[in-house]
């Protein structure tokens, strides 16, 4: 299967508008490798046929599936370690003091994918039960992809997935084995709620947060989209809240609402 210039342009514009994803001409291979299997699964012979079908209907499940297929859902438990060290050493000590009157901390994982990040946070907090006794933690996971959120909410992981980043003692403590799968215990699953959410759309209805994890998402956007998303995230943060970005991401030269927390890679606060 090959992609005509017209179809490539249509898909490129569609993905930019629907999810912010930037697909440059050199990434045409990515369209082919992700969309050819989707076209075949729909009984279509070509990506051209897929595009024709997308054009016929302004709103369709097919468009959702195309966005799903093109968004990267790579995730692992305790990814990059450093953000979780920041949680333990910087954010929690500060917030446990700053929020002591309401004893409630709200955390938002803005690209929750298949759940490894919010569940890593939940397990981290559970490991500190004595320190956070009497506190309520609300962890919200949002993602543009309905299918990954379905997987996240079920909490079933393969042997391969539980070996990527999850310490063996936490596997023993918080998972049960069911055949070839590992199932997260209900007490951890219940700590996280999931909601479909597109970072390009309005999300003022989710409330304000004390910590926002938005890692490895901005790298897929162009500069204007990065700025737009960061401005929207800033609106959902309490004035002394923290933002965590991925290791290859920064606010520098993108958005002036945030400043880096000195000596803490990837960690930002709102400018006062």
């Amino acid at each position: 299967m090959s992609i005509s210039n017209q179809d490539f342009e249509y898909l490129r514009n569609f993905l930019k508008t629907s999810s912010g994803l930037v697909v440059n001409p050199e990434k045409e291979y990515l369209l082919k490798s992700r969309l050819e299997p989707l076209a075949r699964s729909q009984g279509m012979d070509s990506i051209g046929e897929l595009v024709s079908s997308m054009k016929k209907f302004s709103s369709s499940d097919l468009k959702v599936e195309v966005t799903d297929a093109m968004t990267t859902n790579e995730s692992l438990f305790f990814r990059d370690k450093t953000p979780f060290e920041h949680l333990d050493n910087i954010m929690l000590p500060y917030l446990l003091d700053a929020r002591k009157s309401r004893k409630r901390i709200k955390i938002w994982c803005a690209a929750a994918s298949t759940g490894q990040e919010p569940y890593s946070i939940a397990m981290s907090l559970k490991e500190k039960s004595a320190m956070v006794a009497g506190w309520k933690f609300d962890i919200l996971g949002t993602d543009i992809s309905k299918s990954v959120l379905q997987k996240a909410s079920v909490g079933h992981y393969t042997q391969f997935e539980v070996q990527r980043g999850l310490p063996i003692k936490l596997l023993l403590k918080y998972f049960k084995q069911e055949g070839e799968n590992w199932v997260l215990n209900e007490d951890i699953r219940k700590m996280v709620t999931y909601k479909e959410g597109n970072l390009l759309e309005n999300f003022t209805n989710i409330g304000r947060f004390d910590i926002v994890f938005c890692r490895n998402v901005l790298i897929y956007f162009d500069l204007d989209t990065k700025r737009e998303v960061l401005n929207k995230i800033a609106m959902q943060m309490e004035k002394d809240a923290y933002l965590l970005l991925g290791a290859a991401e920064t606010v520098m030269g993108v958005c002036d609402k945030f400043e880096a927390v000195k000596g803490s890679r990837g960690l930002y606060k709102l400018v006062k």
Partner: peptide, 9 residues
Amino acid sequence: DISHIAQAV
């Protein structure tokens, strides 16, 4: 299986 893992730990 989980019992072997627990034994090893």
